[in-house]
Amino acid sequence: MSRQTSGRWLLRFLTIGLLAGMSACGLPQLERDEPAVRQITLIAPVHADELGDAMRLGAEAAAKEFGAELSYAPFKPEEGSAAQLKAAVEALKGGTDALLIDPADSRVLDSAALQAADHGVPVFILNDNRSADGVQASISVDNEEAGRKAGLAMAELLGEKGTVVVLGRQSDDPDLVARELGIVNALNEQPHVSGLIRTSCGEGLGSCRSVARQLLREGQAEGIIALDAQASLAAAAEAEAADRAGRMKIVTFGNELKQLELLQDGLIHTLIVQNGFSIGYLGVKQAVLHLAGEDIERSTRLDTKVINAGNMFWMDNQKLLFPFG
């Protein structure tokens, strides 16, 4: 064998040995890329502390289960629709993969959905039946059925005879419209309900209290069905001020801490409660499935539960009312 030939074999041998040694020493190897963690943003509802907390807990549980990263945008009690829209826009600019929102009004929904479409980001509506271009799915309750439950609860509280006032802010919110429709239909089926008065109050608690105060002063009704938490707090406060606490029957929607205290004290008689935890959980689950290219339900409707002082401490109801415990 010539010196040149033996040199070539030696070079090949050394090269193979060197490569083997580098591999054994842990030189980076080509690996299959891991799927990116999806960034999902939940924009909290405004003026709904306990509901927002329950939705957040549900969303966090789903994010952990499905391997997503959740960002949560909460609000101060005095902040409203403008702050909510600003938070949605900031999330979109920050590169979120999906936006979950309980919109304060139609303007927030339309603007957020439009800007999300520009960023190629899907929108999922929570606790709301409205829709807009770019909205992939909604998770909410059957508000007409919830209203019907409120009407039947009031009819039972009144007993033999009475007039009912439906009190709430003036709004084109389809959820509130559906609630009122359910209430009216249920009460119209009750022969002992002698009258039904529909009245609205302004956005603030003070204006709502003024309307409730006038109703109590004129003695127009034996029962009030408040369409939202603010109206219920106003009605309860004025009933107590007029020395009619407990005698004025009050039925409402929600499970804010103050409402629960008033329920226990007998100033509010019945709450129609939705499962905020499930809404948040399903919102994140739907977002993750959609981002993975899977088919999802366009509309999911959850049931509500009738809560009163007699059943609020039952174990199942405790989990519903206090999911953060």
Rank of each mutant, 00 (worst) to 15 (best):
1 M>D: 09
2 S>G: 12
3 R>N: 13
5 T>G: 04
5 T>Q: 08
8 R>G: 04
8 R>V: 13
9 W>E: 15
17 G>A: 11
17 G>I: 09
19 L>G: 04
19 L>F: 04
24 A>T: 02
25 C>H: 09
25 C>V: 15
26 G>L: 10
27 L>F: 15
34 E>T: 05
34 E>H: 01
37 V>M: 04
39 Q>G: 12
40 I>S: 08
43 I>N: 05
45 P>E: 06
46 V>G: 03
46 V>F: 02
47 H>Q: 14
48 A>D: 13
55 M>S: 01
59 A>G: 11
60 E>I: 12
61 A>I: 11
61 A>T: 11
63 A>I: 07
69 E>S: 13
70 L>K: 04
76 K>V: 09
82 A>F: 07
82 A>P: 01
85 L>V: 07
86 K>H: 14
89 V>G: 06
90 E>T: 13
92 L>C: 08
94 G>M: 07
94 G>N: 12
97 D>W: 08
98 A>W: 03
102 D>H: 15
103 P>R: 10
104 A>E: 11
112 A>W: 05
113 A>H: 04
113 A>P: 05
120 G>N: 11
120 G>I: 02
122 P>F: 03
123 V>F: 04
126 L>Q: 08
132 A>V: 03
134 G>T: 11
138 S>C: 10
138 S>E: 09
140 S>D: 14
144 E>D: 12
145 E>Q: 08
149 K>W: 01
152 L>S: 11
152 L>K: 10
153 A>H: 05
157 L>Q: 12
158 L>F: 00
158 L>K: 01
160 E>M: 10
164 V>W: 05
175 D>V: 00
178 A>N: 04
180 E>H: 00
181 L>T: 03
182 G>K: 00
183 I>P: 00
187 L>H: 00
188 N>Q: 14
193 V>P: 00
194 S>E: 10
197 I>W: 07
199 T>Y: 02
204 G>C: 08
205 L>E: 05
208 C>H: 01
209 R>Y: 07
212 A>N: 00
215 L>T: 00
215 L>K: 01
220 Q>Y: 06
221 A>M: 05
222 E>D: 14
224 I>Q: 00
226 A>E: 03
227 L>K: 00
235 A>R: 01
236 A>T: 08
238 E>S: 08
239 A>G: 04
240 E>P: 03
240 E>Y: 06
241 A>T: 05
244 R>S: 15
245 A>V: 14
246 G>I: 09
247 R>M: 13
248 M>D: 10
257 L>G: 13
261 E>R: 15
261 E>M: 14
265 D>V: 12
267 L>A: 14
267 L>H: 15
269 H>M: 07
269 H>K: 05
276 G>V: 01
278 S>G: 02
291 L>N: 01
298 R>C: 07
300 T>F: 01
306 V>S: 07
306 V>F: 05
309 A>E: 09
310 G>N: 14
312 M>E: 12
314 W>V: 14
315 M>G: 08
316 D>Q: 13
317 N>T: 11
322 F>E: 04
324 F>E: 13
